[in-house]
Design a protein around this nucleic acid. Structure first.
Lengths: 203, 203
DNA sequence: CCGTTAACTTATCAGCGTTAGGTTAACGGG
DNA sequence: CCCGTTAACCTAACGCTGATAAGTTAACGG
């Protein structure tokens, strides 16, 4: 981790602090597992710096959390891609993506919260630059492959992809937000969700 | 609404303030549409009282918001029940419940946020007293009726009900949390979601 | 009319995000 | 080697938040 006390960076190396702040914020979020505990002051402390220094690199807290998410979205995208490696059957690949999606959310609940369960940290940015849209395009492509293979009824891959997104997000976010609910066995539930989508999307 | 300045309640009528506080909090949440704007001070102001008075009736802010939600859950339950009134076909009734669920969420996004998208305001309470469990039991019963009618494959109504819940919640919560996403036409999406569930759950 | 006490207030605390303005140390040039 | 420049960072503070301790006021029974 970042040392508790920092030495002033060399001239021209001011950007180093930015990386340290991001790392500190990420670590704090993972360790405490509570978004409320990730305060500007706590982040500054963990980075061995005073609170105002953070504003040299981020306009406000929302932008900072947005930047943390951006990195997380990249990992999310890689995680999902990796889950389908070596799977030839397009339908099998699609379900594996779905399972990977849910798994990622449950393994990183506080990150998932920021990514998909709160209002976007940075609002009103160009719709083609939305974080996570990259990962989503993988889903749409996977859907298109399934359509080509005749495993899914022909139609709008984007629409079907959005439907699949809402399905996996529904499971993930409810499990995170309502842990006290008397949930049925996870594998049974996930199996049913996949099964319903599978049957429901068939030609 | 509550008057801006309150007269001290009669002896033994202290509970009157509790209702006024709840009403003020609810109104504030609806009017501003922003949970962050609903502060203890703002609520106290709207109720014509000073902030510490709130703590005579609620242990902390979480308990207050929890109480606001409880009332909202009751309305939610009524809203969904009302949507299926006069519909005989059990399958049709089930989909109407689903549509009502999503509609309620989109019409009351900030309430929906507190109800289903944040950690429960009051955590760790007995699993059979979870708010909203009443509304959920209606879904389970509706599923059971569909199974009896042979419209849905026989199985565990609770499991299927949970699956349906995740499905409608997925659409609702993502629409609320990610309004900037290039969403397909709402009716087309909702139609596909219902269609997939319908086909996927058939015997 | 008066004591009791429920109902409510004043004053204050620690912590939050954020800003204005000052300080310090790294470096190029003389 | 020292000096001015300026990037990098800090000190002090503001107005806000949720929350608490301790004081005040007004309703009521006797």
């Amino acid at each position: 981790m970042t040392p508790a006390t920092r030495r002033r960076a060399r001239r021209g190396q001011g950007e180093l602090l930015r990386a340290d702040i991001l790392a500190a914020a990420e670590q704090l979020l993972i360790k405490t597992g509570d978004q409320g505990a990730v305060s500007i002051r706590a982040i500054a402390d963990a980075a061995g710096v005073t609170p105002p220094s953070i504003y040299l690199h981020f306009a406000d807290k929302a932008e900072l959390l947005g930047a943390v998410c951006e990195a997380r979205f990249a990992e999310f995208s890689r995680y999902i891609e990796h889950a389908t490696e070596g799977i030839d059957d397009p339908m099998e690949a699609l379900w594996e993506m779905g399972r990977a999606y849910v798994r990622f959310g449950l393994e990183n609940p506080e990150h998932y919260r920021i990514m998909f369960m709160t209002r976007p940290p940075a609002e009103g940015l160009p719709p083609d630059k939305l974080p996570g849209l990259n990962a989503f395009s993988h889903v749409v492509e996977a859907v298109a492959r399934c359509m080509d293979a005749g495993a899914i009824a022909a139609g709008d891959p984007f629409l079907v992809g959005t439907n699949l997104w809402t399905a996996v997000h529904g499971v993930t976010s409810l499990l995170i937000a309502r842990p006290d609910f008397p949930w049925p066995d996870f594998d049974r539930l996930m199996g049913l969700v996949v099964d319903v989508q599978s049957k429901g999307l068939r030609p």
